[in-house]
Structures are given as structure tokens and as C-alpha cells.
Design a protein around this nucleic acid. Structure first.
Lengths: 245, 245
DNA sequence: GGAAATTTGTACGTATGTATT
DNA sequence: CAATACATACGTACAAATTTC
């Protein structure tokens, strides 16, 4: 029943062009795109056609328009916004379980594929987090903890895995930052040090075991806190969402 | 500080309404939605406003319009189409690695949470696949194999996990069906039988081990076939990295 | 407060593809 | 096959709301 249209509609062509301008970096995230009259001239289309294209990308989460001001790039990929919207309908536990699945895979792949630069990057992140611990700065520690995990994912050499983790990780970041206030930092730091060592020795099984260890600690925290709800607490502030994601 | 922009744009309101009609099942997948004039009347908006809303949902993959015919519902969720589009840019190996990450998690969770109905369903799927093997029907076996895995995911009780698997699984289905022609079925069937047994005994570690076993067989097949991966050239890099192990 | 810039919403006309008579 | 009706595609023009300076 489904037939493939040989020719894309004009609106889709325009949307494709704009999308490629965004993904290529010509229109960076946060930048203001040209006004309607100018784009009409450059793309040689009518206002209605241009508006439908922009509306499509706005709905997809790539653009944000502010009446009386202009239209701004809010994301470089359509996957992020959609995934985040879906995650809002899930409970914290569901989201964390998916995140953990990705973390175990990344640790395993990292142990196989990491190079010296990767190891150096991970070690640097751990050093910085150690400094943050000694200074007692929870926020700073959380930031370097995230960087550490992202370094592991980067060394997995799997772009899809990296991207999925980024979006899911963003959505559960608040709850994890909150957790850092109740759980002793050094426990995670010791674990992460062993995780790095396993990756350095290319011991996939040990790396996965280390990931599972801090996952268990995270889950213990959830049980103690008796958190059962969804993401709603952090979902209502979507209105004052900045231009940048 | 009265900051909140109280109202969504008219177009977004219309899009929301249509989206909820789709996700609620009032407009099932494959059905034809009312024509523009009728929707204009029902929603009390102008034609352009309605068209922008429909265009947004069309771009998101929820609707498909055919000039001269009408507009049809093509998906009940926005996540599926976007994820599939993203996967097209990845290599087969990348996609399979993510899929495997989800499968391991699902097997582990299933071992913890499955009930008797779940076990019954899984056992039934295995029986049917056994029948397909004896009849020598590869397509039929592939279908029941998919059903078996979906039964495992269903018993993970994690809606996000289930949804992600569905979309990713769809995208790699062709390559897996192809693989069934070269790999002895009974090897997978024996493995799956043990996997079911592990889930029945609520032995998470054994369940994960069984998943990893058939993953290894799948990867062996890829090495032998010298498949360079996906629709993109860069997929070859990931494959070569995988070869090194 | 006012003027300019920008997006929003509406109305109408024409063209083109599809199905039906 | 031709004619007709219907549905979507694309274009122009005008008025309104919002933000910035």
C-alpha cells in the first residue's frame, strides 16, 4: 500500500536544506537564523512553504521561534528532543535501567577499543573529580563524573551508543546530582578508579562488574529515598527552556 | 516575575490534539484522517494553521500525505521514525551493539520480574520455533524468534526499554533474517532454551551469559561474511576495530 | 510611548495529482 | 478514454500580536 514518492515535496526539500545547515554547523546551536523574507529570497519559495518547513523543524525540536524576536537553533539533532520527550513519560527507574544497559555495553567495548589518548582523558577526569572531592564541591564533582563517563563512551567508538547516552544522561542528571549529596563520593571514586584500571588492562568482564557495582549503589539510594514517580517534577519548567539545550 | 508564556501557539495546539487522537487510538495506524475542510471546521482554525500542524506531524513521521488522495496515519509514536532515521546513518555493527546492550538488560530484568504467564508465553514461542525448524521454514522460525525476544522484553516491565528495542530491532531485522540461512537453527534454539531456563530459575547472571553466547555467534557470522556495515562508509572502521578482538 | 522588526494567523486563488464516474 | 470531483501543494496579500530599541 505504501508507495515511495519519487519527488520530495517542496516543503520537505526546504526542511532538508535547513536541517543540513544545522547539522553541518553552518547554523550553530543558539544562533539566530535569517528572517522569513530573507529566507524566502534565498530559497526562492513562498512564505507558506517556508513557514511549513520551519514549523516542521520547530515541532521536531531543532528550532525555537519567538514571536517578535526571531527563530533560533535549539538542537543539532532531532533524536535528542524526541527521546527526551519520551523519557518524560517514564519513571526514573525505567530511564536509569536503560542508561545502565548502555553503560555496561560502553564499558565492555571501551575495554576492547580504547587507545592511549582515551585512557589519558579518563585518568584526567578522575584526577579532577578527586580534587573536587577534597574541595568538597559536589557540583564540580558531578561535572567531572559526567565527563569521565562520556570519555568511556567516546572510546566505545559507537556513535549511536554515544548519542543515546548523551540524551538519556541529560534527563537523569538532576536525580544523580541530588544523589551525590547523600552518598559518599569516595565510594564512587574508588569504584571508578578500578573501572579505569579494568579498561586499561582490557578486561571487559571486570569493567562490566565495576559498572554493576556502582549501579547497585545507585539503586540502593533509590530504595532508601523511596522515589516512585516520573520525571514530572523537572518537566514542567519546559516553558522557560532556554534557546540552548 | 510574571514570566510564563501562558499559551502555546495555535498550530502546536492543533498538532497536540491530532497527536493525542493518534496515540489514543481514535485514529489507528493506516487509517485516513478527515480532509482539510472538515478538520478546519472541527478544529475551528484556518487552512494554513491546520496545514502547518499536519506538516509538522508528517515531518515527524506520524502522518503521510498523498496529494489527490488524502492523509493517513503511519505511526503512533514519534520516537520510532526518528530513531529509524538515525539508525540509517549507522553501521550494522553499531546498531547491533546497542541492540545487544538492551537484550542483556532485558534478560537480566526478566529473570527478576517475570511471572508464570511470561514463562508460558516464552515457552510457547520456543515450541513454535522448534516446529518451524523441523519444517525447515526459515521465515517462520525468524518470526517466532522475534516473538520470543519480545516476550522477554515484555517481562522486563520497562516500557522505555521495550519501545527502544522494538524500533532498533525492526531496523536490524533484515540482516538477522539473512543470517538464519547460514547459521544452524538448532544452535540458537538450544541456547534460547537455556536462556528460558535461566529466566525461570530467576538466575540473572546465567540469563545474561546465555544472551552473550548467541551474541558471540552473531558476531562470528559477521566476521565470516565480511560485512562492512550499514549504509555508510564509516561503518567499516567500527568493523575493523571489532576484527582486532 | 512609539516605531521598527519579526513571527502569527487568516483569506483566497491557482496548480497538480488521484480516484471515480 | 475522457470528464468530473475531490484532495493536497503552492503562492500572494493583509491584518494582528509580540519583542526590541
Amino acid at each position: 500500500m505504501l508507495k515511495q514518492t519519487k519527488r520530495l515535496s517542496l516543503v520537505e526539500q526546504v526542511a532538508e536544506q535547513i536541517e543540513s545547515l544545522i547539522s553541518s554547523g553552518n547554523w550553530p546551536v543558539g544562533s539566530k537564523i535569517p528572517a522569513e523574507p530573507e529566507l524566502m529570497e534565498q530559497l526562492q519559495v513562498s512564505r507558506n512553504t517556508l513557514r511549513e518547513a520551519i514549523r516542521a523543524l520547530t515541532h521536531a525540536g531543532l528550532l525555537k521561534t519567538r514571536q517578535g524576536d526571531g527563530t533560533y537553533v535549539s538542537s543539532s539533532s532531532a533524536l535528542g528532543p524526541v527521546l527526551k520527550k519520551r523519557i518524560l513519560r517514564s519513571g526514573w527507574l525505567e530511564t536509569l535501567e536503560v542508561r545502565h544497559a548502555l553503560e555496561k555495553e560502553a564499558a565492555s567495548l571501551s575495554a576492547e577499543r580504547r587507545d592511549e589518548d582515551d585512557l589519558e582523558r579518563m585518568a584526567y577526569c578522575l584526577e579532577q573529580s578527586k580534587i573536587a572531592i577534597l574541595a568538597g564541591e559536589a557540583d564540580l564533582y558531578a561535572r567531572w563524573d559526567v565527563e569521565f563517563h562520556q570519555a568511556i563512551f567516546a572510546s566505545s567508538r559507537n556513535g549511536l551508543l554515544i548519542e543515546l547516552y548523551d540524551y538519556i544522561s541529560d534527563s537523569v542528571q538532576p536525580i544523580l546530582v541530588d544523589m551525590f549529596h547523600d552518598v559518599p563520593f569516595h565510594s564512587f571514586h574508588d569504584n571508578h578508579t578500578q573501572l579505569l584500571e579494568a579498561i586499561r588492562k582490557q578486561d571487559s568482564e571486570m569493567a562490566v562488574e565495576m559498572v554493576q557495582q556502582y549501579i547497585r549503589e545507585t539503586q540502593e539510594h533509590f530504595k532508601n529515598q523511596n522515589i516512585t514517580g516520573g520525571h514530572k517534577q523537572h518537566g514542567e519548567d519546559e516553558f522557560l527552556n532556554q534557546i540552548r539545550t
